[in-house]
């Protein structure tokens, strides 16, 4: 039932993807070309039985859900926002940050008014405030979320906070923690079944690396 064929792995373009590739290389799935200076997006190492491809971070889950990739690495924020029908096999404990609500310093929430929330993560915001029974108006933005409260577009923002520097530089502060975020190893549900032994071996190799702290991959 197991396919001896290659494992297709979607990596998120950027710093997180590079960190995760370093982990995969240490775990025994190298493909040195991946980190070369090239515009190529697909790389293959038949000896290690892997094919990597770089995709936009928010698209990783789509590639995996639709079976173009057997495995992928996506942030928990993306998984919660889009709720793809995939397996979440491992917390890679890298790319660590948090989803938070931030507002202008000194902001006082008026519960008598609808709260205007600017965010890229509309679904997470809706779920979070529904859990609190709060009436909100979601303003979906695709970037530069931090300026929304400054320009009076929104009362608060919900966004990913890594170090908090961008917030501080824009005179904003975190007023509520929503959830911790880190990179997760995800798998296509059909691929999981037909490449089970190989996916399990890779998952266990990564887990060993993460648990031993020898991954050399700090957040």
């Amino acid at each position: 039932m197991n396919d001896g064929g290659i494992l297709n792995i979607a990596l998120p373009k950027g710093r997180l993807g590079e960190k995760v590739y370093a982990m995969l290389e240490k775990a025994g799935y190298p493909c040195p070309e991946v980190i070369g200076d090239t515009r190529k997006l697909i790389f293959e190492n038949p000896d290690a039985g892997v094919r990597y491809f770089w995709v936009k971070p928010s698209d990783v889950a789509i590639y995996v859900e639709r079976g173009a990739a057997d495995l992928g690495v996506a942030g928990k924020d993306i998984l919660l926002e889009y709720e793809p029908d995939v397996y979440e096999l491992s917390d890679l404990r890298t790319g660590i940050c948090r989803m938070a609500v931030a507002a202008k310093k000194g902001f006082r929430d008026d519960p008598g008014k609808t709260l205007r929330v600017a965010t890229k993560f509309s679904h997470i915001a809706r779920m979070y405030y529904a859990g609190k029974g709060r009436d909100i108006d979601i303003i979906h933005l695709n970037g530069s979320i931090e300026i929304a409260p400054i320009l009076g577009l929104s009362d608060v923002i919900m966004d990913i906070v890594e170090t908090g520097t961008t917030l501080r530089e824009n005179d904003l502060e975190v007023i509520a923690e929503v959830l911790p975020i880190s990179a997760r190893l995800i798998a296509n549900k059909s691929g999981f079944r037909f490449k089970y032994d190989r996916i399990r071996a890779l998952t266990e190799a990564l887990a060993e690396l993460v648990n031993s702290g020898k991954g050399g991959v700090k957040a």
Binding site: E65, G67, K189, S190
Partner: peptide
């Protein structure tokens, strides 16, 4: 599941 179809 059948091989070649990404969903149930």
């Amino acid at each position: 599941y059948v091989k070649g179809v990404p969903e149930r």
